[in-house]
Amino acid sequence: MIAHYLPYLKLLLKGVCVLSFIAVSAMFLIWLERKVSAKVQNRLGPMITGPHGSLQSIADTVKLLLKENIVPSGADRLTWWLAPFFVTVPPVTAFLCMPFGPTFIVRDLNVGILFICSITSICVLGIFMAGWGSNNKYSLLGGMRSAAQIISYEVPLLLSALVVIMEAGTLSMQGIVHAQEPCWFFLKPNLFVAFVIYLISATAEVNRVPFDIPEAESELVAGYHTEYSGMKFAMFFVAEYTNLFIISAVAASLFLGGWLGPIRPSAGWFLLKAYVVIAFLMWIRWTLPRVRMDQMMSFAWKVLTPVALLNVLVTGWLLVAKG
């Protein structure tokens, strides 16, 4: 009897693990971001709550949980309520085929990378719903900007992932990691180009500086989540940082060898690589100004997409030449 339910229990357990990992990881990343920004700006950052302010995120979460949930008058109730879920659920789902270790994976889908790329694009729907539902002009502009941005950066992102797929010959995340056993992908010149393109377009995908156009503080106040408060706002925040983790983790598995490392545990290597990418993105965030909407679009379509296409062509040629 128990044996019959065991697979489901196992799945449930995995789900709980993933959810708690996401919560802890988002909190840690928020703390890390505050610390990195403080370091860059010759400040100290949070110091009071816990050693070096490490419990600050927990205090913030408690505060956000206790805050009033304000619904703006004239809001489109249904979209307004649903939007945070549309933003939060896809990144959680993407953990389904995130290879933490050789066996440490929820399900090694044979279309893994495709699944991750497609499921995370659903976020844009949530963002647009938030922008529309808030009945706020700034939010609306933010939502529209976000839709345009994410759709245009999806193209170079997938094209750079395509290069990896061609090189590895498989769509499965584990397969891609295994294919890197002789040599990590970013060490090959054509894949290094793909890596750079991936990083740039992934930064745009998760709305981070220099592509934080949908939430541009100095222009649109807070963009699509201007009107959200309390836990709903926290959900946007968690989604943002989970997305950040996902793009870094995908970058780690596609280009940096995933969980491959000289010594065990393999999950440690995976997390280390992901966090190195995250730290790099944070470092960029606190250095660069924001680009303008049209500049960002022309960069995506006139520079990134042609280069990515060329890269696909060159990779194909190299593969054919190799036989």
């Binding site: 403080a38 400040r43 100290l44």
Partner: peptide
């Protein structure tokens, strides 16, 4: 990025 990197290792002024 080099400038911000250097600043990361300066002492906090606050």
């Amino acid at each position: 990025l080099g400038i911000t990197w250097n600043n990361m290792f300066r002492k906090a002024v606050t």
